[in-house]
Design a protein around this nucleic acid. Structure first.
Lengths: 220, 220
DNA sequence: CCTACCGATCGGTAGG
DNA sequence: CCTACCGATCGGTAGG
């Protein structure tokens, strides 16, 4: 009972998942191998297997672990900030930093995972789709709250929140993809400029936003 | 010499590549298996191997074959159209149709391939990066030519061509990704609206562009 | 009975 | 293009 075996198991689980989120971002969730992970961490293959039950469960646990990292790095820091375009822009800056600093060595975990499992029905795809839908809804909620707080101009058309969220996410994800593919930080500036252009055009107080995104240091 | 063996080999090569471009778009370039392809096509594993020399060469040949499909479906149809925002928008419509009709069952081949090989240095990544760079340069060229033809307003800031190309490509690629992941055509309308919004804001004759994108039929 | 592993091995398949 | 194989490794499971 109190011999610590359960706690040791939980610790080993965390150790395994810390490694699989890294591996999966570069080699894919399907590229995870129980034997290789075990070898890397000095465990037996069957020991790793016993902790998760199947490779598929390991993949799903890896997606959940990546979501926790993302939440801590992108969502949590803005938690207490008042709603507004400033909060939306801060969220975008945090996303760009999350991508540019290679939190996951292969770039955004959820862009990679969506590309890998997007056309493979099953529980892994469903988990990835749910994680992405939650993020989209979170961005939409921030835009909605900003609108309710009077952050958008009233002399223009009402802001189409899902459209604007789609455009912001598109710019950030292409920056992530191109930056990884070409080892180049320049796409982050493009994404930042595009997002600021949209937000400044709609903001009631555009001067509260910078004219240009701050420079992003090279990856790696 | 003239016994037709070379021609038969080329035909078999085309048959194999027609299959691998489909498979790779859903299961990845790394997921290609010489044995599986051979079995699917009633060939021997070593026969397929002999045609390409290595799995890596098969992957590169698959990327080249996909590029030919893309060029025929998206680039070739606008070849003789005069430069202008109308040509740019037509190119975007063709891209959206290329994605929405599932030319490749897993969505845009080059988005999938970039996600899979973006952080794996080597000849396959280089070939994927080159194909994407060519597409980006082609879009930029069309925007540049439109500007030279007087298609953009002169009372606004000069159009930043690479920035605009980045934004257009970002919207199309997120539509592709989300449509595949959620089996939903709605993202294509978002992408089309976003692109038209940008083009109409910059166009000297915005009335030559539609106000809304035409509806896209569901995938599959 | 439980867990968290171990060394060994299952039936199949990988690239070559 | 074929049959016939190789060293290795795959995900998963056996008894202890």
């Amino acid at each position: 009972m109190a011999d610590g075996r359960v706690e040791r198991g939980n610790q080993t689980r965390r150790t395994v998942l810390a490694r699989t989120v890294e591996l999966a971002s570069t080699e894919g969730l399907e590229g995870l191998s129980l034997g290789r992970i075990a070898g890397d961490l000095g465990l037996s293959k069957s020991g790793v297997f016993a902790l998760f039950g199947s490779k598929e469960e390991l993949q799903i646990a890896t997606v959940r672990a990546a979501a926790a990292v993302f939440a801590a790095q992108v969502v949590q820091p803005v938690h207490e900030q008042p709603a507004g375009v400033g909060k939306v822009w801060r969220l975008c800056e945090l996303w760009i930093a999350y991508s540019a600093c290679r939190t996951f060595p292969g770039g955004c975990f959820f862009r990679s995972a969506a590309a890998e499992f997007g056309s493979r029905p099953g529980p892994v795809r469903d988990r990835v789709a749910a994680a992405r839908a939650e993020w989209t809804q979170y961005v939409e909620q921030q835009l909605h709250d900003a609108g309710r707080a009077g952050a958008f101009r009233e002399d223009a058309e009402p802001v189409a929140v899902p459209q604007l969220a789609f455009e912001i996410i598109a710019l950030m994800e292409l920056a992530d993809s191109e930056s990884v593919l070409h080892d180049d930080p320049a796409p982050y500036e493009r994404a930042g400029r595009g997002i600021l252009g949209r937000l400044r055009a709609l903001a009631a107080a555009p001067d509260e936003l910078p004219e240009q995104p701050t420079a992003v240091s090279p990856p790696g």
